[in-house]
Write a protein that binds this DNA or RNA. Structure first.
Length: 190
DNA sequence: CATGGGATTGACT
DNA sequence: GTCAATCCCATGC
């Protein structure tokens, strides 16, 4: 997607990314779950201001922000809004598309367990082989690439929900899910 | 310079 | 349902 796609309010981008495709090498998947983060609310890393850690978040839109969660997992975000604003969309789950065998191998799962491959923000980075070195990369040029919706996902029904696993600003309904998808990290709340 | 929490996952009870 | 693993980095003394 072009940088202009990301130079919009982060909530619009979070919804607009549902149905788009994430590519890395020979593996890819369709985005079925996202969350929005913005420097105006305390759950966002950028809330504390510009630091070495949040440099990418405040940088130009359309870049990858990859950071380490719980010292264990790499999480993939797409930087949004104009440069100088700390906002990003967390990619939380994918529907596996290409390179499924390779993804299963990386995840240590039997081929055929499609739902276990990318149903979580840490799982999908492991399945696609995305790591901290991908931080700051251009999402239009790679190595990690996000491209537009395939025909089958051209007009997705999107459900809003509360964000998962955070303690601050937990009341904001800034989670976006593809309705009925079996590949979500957590089912949509009732 | 020491401390503690975090946008998670998987193994175990 | 509970809990440890593991590490970056913001905060506070």
């Amino acid at each position: 997607m072009k940088p202009s796609f990301y130079t919009r309010p982060v909530l619009e981008v979070a919804e607009g990314l549902i149905g788009c495709v994430v590519d890395h090498g020979e593996t890819s998947g369709v985005i079925v779950e996202t969350e929005a983060y913005h420097d105006s609310e305390p759950a966002c890393h950028a809330y504390v201001g510009l630091t070495p850690r949040t440099e990418t978040l405040f940088g130009p839109p359309g870049r990858a922000y990859v950071y380490l969660s719980y010292g264990v997992h790499a999480l993939l975000n797409a930087v949004c809004e104009p440069e100088g604003v700390g906002a990003a969309v967390l990619i939380r789950a994918l529907e596996p598309l290409d390179g499924i065998e390779l993804m299963a191998e990386r995840r240590g799962l039997p081929a055929g367990n499609l739902r276990g491959l990318c149903s979580g923000p840490g799982k999908l980075t492991q399945a696609l082989g995305i790591g901290l070195s991908d931080n700051g990369g251009d999402l239009a040029r790679g190595p990690v690439v996000i491209s537009g919706r395939p025909e089958r996902f051209s007009d997705p029904v999107v459900q809003r929900d509360l964000r998962i696993g955070i303690s601050k600003a937990a009341e904001l309904p800034w989670r976006f899910c593809l309705a009925g998808s079996p590949y979500l990290s957590v089912p949509v709340r009732a």
